[in-house]
Design a protein around this nucleic acid. Structure first.
Lengths: 254, 254
DNA sequence: TATGCTGGGTGCGGTATCGAACACAGGACC
DNA sequence: GGTCCTGTGTTCGATACCGCACCCAGCATA
């Protein structure tokens, strides 16, 4: 818990040493309790957040109150891409889905760094593209796949962003994220439990058989994961304009 | 038809004069016939396309062949944002949804221009953010709104990208875009026709009452349109880092 | 022990959409 | 004129999900 450092965020960790030296002194470690709202839809953003061990959901809330998660951000990325995209705000809400810590950076710092057109620009843009993939795939998934499959996808995406295979998350909250009824999640979760893939009890979900979970998931998880692996291959992406090999890795355990 | 110029693309038109002078000689005018595939999912992109009077759909195709449009690009934007985002490819297909002309620019030219970190970077990033809004809203719309509403949204988004209020588009194609059955579109279109909002005949759709169409649409159209207006206010966005006023304009006729 | 709250399980009718099959009409082509 | 193809209209049963209502179990608190 106290051993968390900025380098727990993979995006930060992958930046060149000189950029890290320049940036890290300005990072503020902040607690991210479950349910904390980082931005409300339309808010002008004052900072970006680099999750260390928490998960943040980007959620659209409709006029009638119904909602749907469009993407999820963990220690592989950053919350608040609109800041460097130039829009300063988005119509979505950012809310903490799994508690933990994050590092906050002021809007001006990230923009200054962005304008230098160095590694930060390259990294955050590639990350943003992976976010676009996740959003697009969510759109398709919402259209074509049933709750059972979507629950699997959601569990996998969440697990990838945590070190453990236990999620602290009620079915009601999951239903809100998926934009479906709580009962629908109950049904799907019951099926998974009967298959021995997960076990849950009052808000705690343990994934017992990840491989089977992947098989039961729709293709959307694999697409997102593959594209993430390709785009966030931070280790070698520090040189701008260097073409990445396009090989797609097979989905595998984190 | 022959009077089309690069300035018919609003993104190009809004660039500063010096950038236009540098860029325009490298633009190639290309025909965009209905159904032409600009990129297949996963293709490495060789060029970007600035639509002049055509519409391009970004489409996800699933393993089982089912598909869904995640966003639509007209003369307000550019096709191929992955090129400057750094990914070089996306898992989506880009396909011409309404025939016309576009201006093609090679991958290297756009990247060179991007690296100068001038108006082009600012413009395309803001445009990309509006694209993100469209994708996100599509995800939510797919989850929560019925075919009737989605058809209205889709017609409005398409009309905004054409000068006329006639769409040349069969119900079957629309169904592919929305990711629903053709019969579902037939039903929805029949209702709209009976209300006197549209008239159609064998692949030609005339919008007779746009105001009513907007009222019948779900909120998703207004959200996307408002955000587009805010982000693509090209006229005054040429200065990097200049903060835009955050006033939201009411949705109105194009 | 009583109470209350939260998380989860179940049942029921309603509805939107699906998959499939078929019928019909406009227009192009011979 | 006849023929064919494409675009549209219609029907029917299946199903996934919804809204609602209610119940039960675990757990904390008094």
């Amino acid at each position: 818990m106290t051993s968390v450092t900025p380098r727990d965020n993979k995006l930060l960790a992958s930046l060149p040493a000189d950029v890290q030296e320049r940036l890290f002194p300005h990072l503020v470690r902040v607690a991210m309790p479950l349910g904390k709202v980082l931005y409300e839809a339309g808010d002008t953003m004052a900072s970006v957040y680099f999750p260390a061990d928490c998960i943040v959901s980007l959620l659209y809330v409709m006029e009638n109150g119904a909602s749907a998660e469009i993407s999820v951000v963990g220690n592989e990325g950053v919350v608040g891409v609109s800041l460097f995209m130039g829009g300063e705000s988005t119509p979505s809400r950012a809310i903490v889905q799994s508690a933990g810590l994050a590092y906050r950076l002021s809007a001006q710092r990230i923009k200054d760094e962005f304008v230098r057109h160095g590694a930060v620009l390259v990294h955050v843009l590639r990350y943003t593209q992976s976010l676009i993939t996740q959003m697009s795939q969510t759109a398709v998934c919402n259209r074509h796949h049933n709750i059972d499959q979507q629950l699997c996808r959601w569990l996998l995406l969440s697990m990838d962003r945590l070190s453990s295979n236990r999620l602290v998350m009620t079915q009601d909250l999951i239903a809100n994220m998926l934009g479906v009824r709580r009962e629908g999640v109950t049904d799907a979760a019951l099926k998974l439990q009967k298959l021995g893939v997960i076990r849950y009890q009052r808000g705690k979900i343990d994934v017992l058989d990840r491989v089977r979970l992947e098989m039961l998931s729709c293709e959307c998880y694999a697409v997102v994961k593959t594209e993430e692996d390709r785009l966030l291959d931070y280790a070698v992406s520090a040189v701008p304009d260097r073409r990445k090999p396009l090989t797609r890795r097979v989905t595998q355990r984190s």
